[in-house]
Design a protein around this nucleic acid. Sequence first.
RNA 1: GCCGAUGUAGCUCAGCUGGUAGAGCAGCUGAUUUGUAAUCAGCUGGUCGGGGGUUCGAGUCCCUCCAUCGGCUCCA
Length: 639
Amino acid sequence: MIKVTFPDGNVRSYEKGVTALDIAASISEGLARNVLAAKVNGEVIDATRPIEKDISLQLLTWNDKGGKSTFWHSSAHLLAEALEVLYPGVKFGIGPAIETGFYYDIDLGDRQISLEDLPAIEEKMKELAQRKSNYERKEVSKTEALSFFEAKGDEYKLELIEELEDGQITFYQQGDFVDLCKGPHLVDTSKIKAIKLTNVAGAYWRGDEKRKMLTRIYGVSFPKQKELQEYLELMEEARKRDHRKLGAELELFMFSEKVGAGLPIWLPKGTALRSRLEDFLKEEQLKRNYTPVITPHIGKKELYITSGHYEKYGQDSFQPIQTPRESEEFFLKPMNCPHHCEIYGHRPRSYRELPVRIAEFGTVYRYEQSGELHGLTRVRSFTVDDAHIFCTPDQLKNEFLDVLDLTMHVLKKLSFENFTAQVSLRDPEQKEKYIGSDENWDRAEKMIQEAADEVGLETVVELGEAAFYGPKLDFMVKDALGRSWQLGTIQVDYNLPERFELEYIGSDNASHRPIMIHRAPFGSMERFVGVLIEHTGGKFPLWITPDQFAILPISDQYIPFAQSVLKQLEMAGLRGYIDDRTESVGKKIRDTELSKVPYMLIVGEKEQESGSVSVRRQGEGDQGSSTPEQFIDLVTSEI
RNA sequence: GCCGAUGUAGCUCAGCUGGUAGAGCAGCUGAUUUGUAAUCAGCUGGUCGGGGGUUCGAGUCCCUCCAUCGGCUCCA
C-alpha cells in the first residue's frame, strides 16, 4: 500500500500501481469524469500513470492551469493527427499548449494552408476525437526513436531527439498518430468536444530567423461547446474594444503614411484625454517633491557612448543625423536617462539634497522592426512618464516604497483594480553577466521584495529577467476582459551613475556614488492610453473623458437656453458642447450614444420653462429631469 | 526584418473567368423645427495604396515599393 496526501492535508491509502484516475473514481464518479491530469509531487503527469510510492497528489481538472494545458496539449496532438490524415507526408515541428489554446508547427513542403482550409481540419479533428482513442505513453530508446522518425522522414523530430538523453524519451500515440512527447496527456480524445482553429501564421523553426519558416496553426478547444461559445464571445468583445478601432472612431489618434509608420498623431480629443492623465501625474509628483525638467529630443553620439547604449543598440537604432558643416552626429533620444544624468552631474551634489527626483514627460524614439508595429502599444515614438531618482543606498528602500505607492495610486485612480508585480532578479547561476557588486545586488533584490510585501503587492519572481544593470519590478495589470498588460516599471540602476561618474559629498566629506531608480507609473502615454481604451471600451472615467456631456436642444429655438446651461456648467468646471445641428432628437441621441459621451442633456420647451435639463446617461437611457445644479453635483460626486 | 493575408469614396463594403467603377452611412444643398438610438429629397465625392510591366484594353494578370492585419523574433 502507498500513502497519498491530498492538497487539503488528507491522507488516504491505495494499492501500489494505482492511477490518479482510479483515485478520482474512489472519491466520486463526477471527479473521475472531470479529471484531466494529475500533479504528483509538483509534477504534472498522465492521470493513467501508475503510482508506485507515497506521494502528494492534486487531481487536475479544467479549473486548474495544469489541467487546461494538458487538455490543449492533447488537442495539439489531435490537430497533428488530423493533419497527417489530410496532408500525408506533412512534417511536424513542435505542438505545445499556450496560454490560451495550442498550436502545431508543420512543414507542408510545397503545399500551403490558408484560413479557408481550417474548417475542414477542424471537422477532421472532431471526427477523430469522437473515436475515443486513448493517448498511450511509451518509453523508447534513443535508437528506436531515431529510427522511427528516420523512417517517417521527419527531420525536425530527429533534431529534437538528438538533443534528448537516452532513457528520457517517450512517445505518445492516439489512433494512428505517434509523436515524440514528454506528455502528459488526457486519457482519451473524447474529452475534446469543442474545437476552433483560430489562425495560421508563419513561425521560424525553433524561433530562429535563420532557419526554415514553418506553418503554425493555432487553435483552442474546450470540454464543452458552451465554453467555446463564451470564448468566441469574449474574442468578439475584445475585437469591439480594440484601441485601434476605437481610437479612430472616437477621433483620439491617427497614423499617417506620410508621417510614417509607428508614429502616432494625437488628435484633439486624444490630446485632451492624455493631457488630463499627464496633469494628474504631474500634480502627484509635485506633492512628492519631484523636480520637473525639459530636455531636447536629440543628443550627441558621445552621450550614448558614455551611457553604453551606443554599443548595445547603436546599430539597431534610428541612425544618427548630422550637422551639415561639422558632421557632428546626433541620435534621436531612445530614452531620457542620459540627459537626466547630465542634469544631476552639472554641479556638485551634497548628501543633504538627496534624493534628487528628476521628472519629465520625455518623448523617445526607438526603431522597431516594421512587422512589430501595433497601434499605440508598439510604436516608434512614445512619451515616457519618466523620472530618475538619485539617492543614497540608505534611501533606496524608502524611495522604492514611495514609487510603489504612487504607481498603485495611479492604477487605482484609473479603475485598474487587478494588478500584480513581476520582480525580475539576477540569474544566480550567471552572476558575472551583471554589473555592480554582489553585495549591492543582494541588497537591492531583497529590498524590492520587502517593499512589495510591505505595500501588500502580490509578486511573481522571475530569475534571470533582470536588466544587466539592476533588478526591476514591472506592474502587470489585468484589464476588464482579464487580459494582462505590462504597464508601469521601476528599475534600480547601478550602471549609469558609474558611467556618468555621478557623485555626492557625504557627511564624511568624501565622494560617494548615488544609486539611480528609473520609474514610469504609466509606462508610456501611448501604451497606457491604448490599454485604457481597451479596458474601458472607450467609456472613460468622467474626470479624463474628452467631453463629459452634450446638450441636445429639441429644436433650434432652444439653442439660446442650451447656451445658458452650457455656460453654467462650464463655470462649474465641467466640459461639454451643444449639438446645434438641425436634426431630430433621435438622431442627436444616437450620434452622442455612439460617440460614448457619458451624459446627454436634452432641453426643450418643458426644460426652458422650468429651467431644468432632462438627463440621459450613455448606455443606460433616460434618467429623468434635474436642475443644472443637481447635474453639476451628480457629475462632481462621480468624479 | 521574415512568413502569410489585405489595401476600391471620409467610414463599412460590392465589383464573376481582363471590356474602362457601385451601394449604405458620412459630407453638401433644400425642405422639415423635431421629446430619448437614424426625417425626407437632391447633389458632390474615387489617377481602385504608389510605381513599373503584360495586353487592343488592367480595379481584375505579373514585378516592385509602401501601409495595414495575423504570427515569428526583438524591446535600453
